[in-house]
Simulated assay, not measured.
Amino acid sequence: MSTAHTVRPLRRAVHAIRWYVRELSGEAVYDRYVAHARSCDPDAEVMTRREFERSRTDAREADPREGFRCC
């Protein structure tokens, strides 16, 4: 088997693992927010990651149906 045949599946696996970890950790949520905000209005001011995460946390804490727990 050539090197190209070995590297391609390895890259796919690394890409899939990275995607899975980002989805599981919630890191991809911010990227989707930015893409959505830019697609709706390219000139709109987009929240920073810190502002976005703070807003997300505040929304979860304010709504008990979201399942927020302090411990």
Rank of each mutant, 00 (worst) to 15 (best):
M1R: 11
M1N: 07
M1V: 12
M1Q: 09
M1K: 07
S2N: 14
S2Q: 05
S2D: 11
T3F: 09
A4S: 09
A4L: 07
A4P: 02
H5G: 09
H5D: 13
H5M: 14
T6H: 04
V7F: 07
R8D: 12
R8A: 13
R8W: 06
P9H: 01
L10D: 04
L10H: 03
R11P: 00
R12K: 14
A13N: 13
A13F: 13
A13Q: 12
A13T: 15
V14N: 10
H15M: 10
H15I: 01
A16D: 13
I17C: 13
W19I: 00
Y20C: 11
Y20I: 00
V21N: 11
V21R: 13
E23T: 00
E23H: 08
S25Q: 07
A28K: 07
D31S: 15
Y33D: 05
V34A: 06
A35N: 05
A35L: 03
A35P: 00
A35S: 06
H36F: 14
H36M: 14
A37Y: 02
A37G: 05
S39Q: 09
D41A: 15
D41E: 15
D43Y: 09
A44H: 03
E45Y: 10
V46D: 02
V46R: 04
V46H: 03
M47K: 12
M47V: 01
E51S: 10
E51A: 04
F52H: 04
E53W: 02
R54T: 04
S55Y: 07
R56I: 03
R56F: 06
T57M: 03
T57H: 02
T57P: 00
D58F: 09
A59Y: 06
A59P: 03
R60G: 04
R60Q: 00
R60D: 00
A62Y: 02
A62N: 08
D63N: 15
D63R: 04
P64L: 00
R65Q: 08
R65F: 13
E66C: 06
G67Y: 01
G67L: 05
R69F: 05
R69I: 10
R69W: 02
C70W: 05
